[in-house]
Computed example of a mutant assay.
Amino acid sequence: MGDPACPLQAVDLSDEPGRTVRVPARWFPDVSADLAIADMDFAEFADAAQAPGIFRGFDEN
């Protein structure tokens, strides 16, 4: 699970059922917490994903 080459797959079950994004273990706590407290929506993470659909944090530039 800690292998960056094997990210977890997150699936939207609410707004766009079936939409997916890959989340490396390093980012999972942040994504999980933000979704749990409804601070952010699944789409915000999915939209910020880099090719090939892997979320690697938000570009702050």
Rank of each mutant, 00 (worst) to 15 (best):
D59I: 09
E44D: 11
Q9A: 11
W27V: 00
N61T: 11
T20L: 01
F45Y: 15
P52Y: 01
F55C: 04
F58P: 05
G18D: 08
V21F: 13
I37N: 04
A36E: 08
A33Y: 07
L13M: 13
A48C: 05
A51C: 05
A48W: 02
A5F: 06
F28K: 02
L8R: 06
R19Q: 10
D39P: 00
F28R: 08
E60L: 15
G57Y: 12
C6T: 12
P17A: 13
Q9K: 14
L13S: 09
I37T: 11
T20D: 01
A10M: 11
R19I: 00
T20I: 08
D39N: 14
V23Q: 02
R22D: 06
P17D: 09
A38L: 13
P24M: 10
C6G: 00
D34A: 13
S32W: 08
S32D: 08
P29W: 10
A10V: 09
E60W: 15
E60Y: 15
A5Q: 10
D47I: 01
E60Q: 15
L8K: 03
A46Q: 13
R22C: 11
P4W: 10
Q50W: 00
A33I: 07
M40R: 15
L8I: 06
E16H: 09
D59E: 11
F55T: 02
Q9T: 15
F45N: 01
A38C: 12
Q9L: 13
E60C: 12
D3Q: 09
A10G: 06
L13F: 05
A51I: 02
R22P: 00
E44Y: 08
F45A: 03
A36M: 06
F42V: 05
D59H: 11
P24Q: 07
D15A: 15
D34C: 14
D30T: 11
D59V: 11
D47P: 01
G18T: 08
A46C: 08
M1D: 12
T20C: 12
W27N: 04
D3I: 07
G53W: 01
D12Y: 10
V21M: 15
P7M: 08
A51H: 10
P52H: 06
T20W: 01
R22S: 12
E60A: 09
E44Q: 14
Q50H: 08
A43H: 07
S32Q: 10
D30S: 07
R56H: 04
I54M: 08
D34G: 02
R56A: 06
A36I: 00
G53K: 04
A43Q: 07
E44L: 06
D3T: 05
D41N: 10
A25K: 11
Q9M: 13
D3W: 06
G53C: 04
A10P: 03
M1G: 14
D59Y: 06
P4Y: 04
A36C: 07
A33G: 01
D15V: 09
A25P: 06
S14L: 12
M1I: 13
M40D: 06
P4F: 08
A25G: 04
N61V: 10
V21Q: 03
M1A: 14
P17V: 09
A25F: 15
V31K: 05
T20Y: 01
P17M: 09
A10I: 01
L35K: 03
Q50R: 14
F58M: 09
S32G: 01
V23W: 03
P7Q: 07
F55Q: 02
D12R: 10
F55D: 02
D12H: 07
V31E: 02
